[in-house]
Design a protein around this nucleic acid. Structure first.
Length: 843
RNA sequence: GGGUGAUUAGCUCAGUUGGCUAGAGCAUCUCGUUUACACCGAGAGGGUCGGGGGUUCAAGUCCCUCAUCACCCACCA
């Protein structure tokens, strides 16, 4: 097959992927140890972004590498219904049609979103194919599959029976725009200007940022040791309000900061987390004044029906008129919770919700983490996870949305305190023992089901081979939301850790190093890049120079490097194939020339080094190794040397080997080449084994290294002196006797000849008596350069000598190191002598 | 207010348990059409590894401290 001089990924990628998929290469095979990776299920509705390329790139590289190591690999793909996220997207679409989710029942909405998502999901899977993901499509899982729901229900039931789940009225983070509660870690905080209003409150002056909630006040709090107010504690005071006087109790609580404001706080338990806790401690009543839609309720009197913002203005105005407003600190700033989707201020809202008692679930997880049952990449994230779990709060898993798994709980219509577990969620009401129960209309937080993803997707306990999984690869941004919860739930349900290793990748930042965001318009779209450079190039570009847990900018120049690398590989293949031609050569590691021995050694080293790097998930280093062994060792030296004497079987072996080494990183181009090779038959590279390159003969390889040194020096001199034509002469050199032609070719000389003696520019970097035939004038010009060379060498010598003069060094440093230093000293000395001799000749 | 991470060449970043001349890609400069590749070849320049201190025979790497940036966590009304 004739290959064009440039690799054009667009022509091959699609077919190559289809070839893999049709051959069943993605499903687990063989009797090796299992290596199971569960893909973090992408949002079934999301568009492709460069973060997907990063995670697919990492996971696919690992998975392909492990497959080549002979492991029984399964990479389980999936899609996340992403409850709230997806519903928000759908709501936007509804809004365009002038509709709202509140125009439909939850059932209607669920069906609509389901159809909406179904189409997107297929499209998304195709994109993952385009990215080269070698995942087991036959084991695709969706977070709304019946199986997922079944497992989620049985976990819920187990939690219920074990008393680890409870329903209660609690203050919950609530978005009045989306009308649903959130878990504490889903809230984003922003610093903002919040005017601080000082008002007269009975005998007190107090400061508040939320005057509109005063109708919900059920106490006033001061610090128990505050001399100014101590006497009021426990008393009921009379307060003049907007609508006349009312009575309120004064409590003493350490939560109050005496330094802040006036040291007096009004307590509004239904609308503030701190106040709620104070209320618990002092048995105070909670009085709601805000409705779920963000308007004031009847408790607010004449302000009923107003939005929170309007009510605040109106209340301030009314206070002013009554003379109750003392002053306003306009400059005050505080941190305010925001809905991470719409930016609406989060309201602490009193809601009946299901909570998981996380303290109990966290305990074994913390132990497993401390005992290092799970390896972390980067390791520092372990401590962070432990820290989080030690302070974890109970997890609110109720969501007031349609798109999700219905909560399998029913409430007795006659006794609101009686709840029963039942999975007949398609029913609104059920009858049991003569009593009528009504279904909880809420759905689970998406993370409740995805937190069980490892044992759901692997089919545990029916399939014990693939659980615990080996690796969980995901973004650092969801360490708490996902990774921590998977560990807790995994241990709770299965008694086992869900994965042995966690690799957390950092975030892809924009080209300018800032965070990518739609509003900033700096989001990088991978599609045009793939169209231009190919998938391999983008994957390489995104993987290059990246380390675990670190966010780094998207750098287009690295994609260019990736593209160039693919092209280099392509041309290496083209050349070797052209040499082999139609002959029936098979790859054989049978070295003949010193170059053969040398390249074998290089390949052996690279293969080993890559295995070391990959074992620690140091992708950047593994990629660099394969990049340089192919580009520098094979293309620049071996192929050039092979132009002097060709060993076809060996060349085939080299090509065969580098394709294997590069395959996990550049799957498409390597497989494309593999398919053009004569000796590979119908086989697929994806299913080949990692190359085991045997040790090479050191002495033979060393001859080539020596030749490289000669060539390098000649090239340097030629470059410095801008010599176009020159020949090499030598006396007494076995190496040059034998490899003169090779040196001539590699160094671009006109000739290499043996003579008795002669004049010219002597090489100083090798032991060989060799010189370039250069006229006197040019030689003298070079003399000055020799002087700087001598200076450098002398500096070097000084350093080495100093080190060896240091007794502690000789005593304490490893013997090998000291020996190396001695050898180096010797070499440096003889180098100096040679340079010195040259300088003298011109003096 | 706590915590974590970062600070290495012009830019984007690597650098495993401390080991000697600190690397890569891209960019820059010089030269080059020798039977793969200009998405190329041969060479060059460019870094007191954020500042200061310490431990050690030896520090980009370990410890302390300061500075700047980023992220996470926390109940300041």
């Amino acid at each position: 097959m004739k290959l064009s001089s440039k690799y054009t990924p667009q022509e091959y990628e699609k077919d190559i992927y289809a070839l893999w998929e049709a051959s069943g290469a993605f499903s687990p095979k063989g009797k090796g140890d299992p290596f199971t990776v569960v893909m973090p299920p992408p949002n079934a509705n999301a568009g492709l972004h460069i973060g997907h390329v990063l995670f697919v790139g990492i996971e696919d590289t690992v998975v392909r590498y492990e497959r080549m190591q002979g492991k029984r690999v399964q990479w389980i793909p999936g899609a996340d219904h992403a409850g709230f996220e997806t519903q928000v997207v759908y709501e936007k679409q509804l809004a365009k049609e002038g509709k709202s989710r509140f125009d439909f029942t939850r059932e209607e909405l669920y069906d609509q979103v389901f159809d909406f998502v179904a189409g997107n999901r297929e499209r998304f899977n195709d994109i993952f194919r385009q990215l080269g993901a070698s995942c087991d499509w036959e084991n695709f899982h969706f977070t709304l599959d019946q199986n997922t729901i079944d497992v989620a229900y049985s976990t819920f039931e187990k939690l219920w029976k074990d008393g680890l789940i409870y329903r209660g009225e609690r203050l919950v983070n609530y978005c009045t725009e989306h009308r649903t509660g959130f878990a504490d870690i889903e809230v984003e905080y922003q610093e903002q200007n919040s005017p601080l209003y000082y008002m007269q409150y009975g005998p007190f002056e107090l400061a508040t940022t939320r005057p509109e909630t005063k109708f919900g006040d059920t106490a006033v709090a001061v610090h128990p040791d505050d001399e100014r107010y101590k006497k009021y504690i426990g008393q009921t005071i009379e307060v003049e309000g907007i609508n006349g006087p009312f009575e309120i109790v004064v409590v003493g609580d350490e939560m109050v900061d005496r330094e802040f404001g006036t040291g007096v706080v009004k307590i509004t338990p239904a609308h503030d987390f701190n106040d709620w806790e104070v209320a618990q401690r002092h048995n105070l009543q909670a009085k709601r004044v805000i409705n779920h839609d963000g308007t004031m309720n009847h408790e607010a009197g004449q302000f009923e029906g107003m939005t929170i913002a309007d009510a605040r203005k109106a209340v301030v105005k009314a206070l002013k008129e009554k003379g109750l407003l003392l002053r306003i600190d306009e400059k005050y700033k505080n941190r305010v919770g925001k809905c991470y989707k719409c930016g609406t201020q989060i309201e602490p809202m009193l809601l009946d919700q299901w909570f998981i008692d996380m303290k109990k679930l966290a305990k074994p997880a913390i132990k497993a983490l401390k005992d290092k049952k799970i390896e972390f990449y980067p390791e520092a994230k372990r401590a962070q996870t432990i820290e989080y779990l030690q302070n974890v709060k109970d997890w609110n898993i109720s969501r007031q949305i349609a798109w999700g798994i219905p909560i399998p709980a029913f409430q007795n219509v006659d006794d609101p305190d009686e709840w029963i577990f039942d999975t007949q969620v398609e029913q609104h009401t059920i009858e049991k023992d003569g009593k009528t129960y009504r279904r909880d209309p809420d759905v689970f937080d998406t993370w409740f089901s995805s937190g069980q993803w490892p044992f759901i997707t692997t089919g545990y306990p029916n399939n014990k081979d693939t659980y615990p999984t080996q690796l969980m690869e995901t973004g650092v941004d969801i360490l708490y939301q996902w990774v921590a919860r998977m560990i807790c739930l995994g241990l709770y349900v299965t008694g086992k850790i869900p994965f042995e290793q966690v690799y957390l990748h950092g975030m892809m930042r924009a080209t300018d190093g800032t965070k990518m965001s739609k509003s900033k318009g700096n989001v990088v779209d991978p599609m045009p890049i793939i169209d231009e450079y190919g998938t391999d190039a983008l994957r390489l570009g995104v993987l290059a120079g990246r380390s675990a847990g670190e966010s780094a900018a998207y750098d287009p120049s690295k994609v260019v490097a990736g593209r160039n690398f693919c092209n280099k590989l392509w041309n290496v293949a083209r050349y070797i194939e052209s040499v082999i031609g139609d002959s029936k050569v098979k790859p054989e590691a049978k070295p003949k020339s010193v170059a053969d021995y040398w390249v074998l050694h290089e390949l052996q080293q690279a293969s080993e080094l890559m295995q070391k790097s990959m074992a620690d998930y140091r992708f950047s280093e593994a990629y660099e190794t394969v990049y340089h062994v192919i580009w520098d060792s094979v293309a620049d030296w071996y192929i050039e040397a092979s132009k002097q004497s060709k060993n076809e079987a060996m060349m085939a072996y080299v090509l065969d080997t580098i394709l294997r080494l590069a395959h996990p990183f550049a799957p498409f181009v390597t497989e494309t080449i593999w398919q053009t090779l004569r000796w590979t038959g119908d086989s697929l590279l994806i299913s080949q084994k990692w190359p085991k390159v045997g040790k090479s003969k050191k002495s033979e390889a060393a001859v080539f290294t020596d030749i490289q040194a000669i060539v390098a020096e000649i090239r340097l001199i030629k470059g410095e002196l801008k010599l176009k034509k020159t020949s090499l002469y030598y006396a007494d050199s076995k190496t040059l006797d034998e490899y003169g032609e090779l040196v001539k070719g590699l160094a671009g000389l006109d000739g290499v000849s043996k003579v008795e003696d002669g004049n010219g520019l002597h090489l100083t970097q090798t032991d060989h008596k060799a010189w370039l035939d250069i006229d006197r004038e040019t030689r003298e010009h070079y003399a000055s350069q020799l002087k700087t060379q001598r200076e450098e060498l002398e500096k070097r010598l000084e350093g080495l000598q100093k080190r060896l003069d240091n007794e502690s060094y000789v005593k304490n440093a490893p013997k090998e190191l000291v020996k190396e230093t001695r050898d180096e000293l010797k070499e440096t000395k003889s180098s100096i002598e040679r340079v010195e001799a040259e300088i003298k000749r011109y003096a």
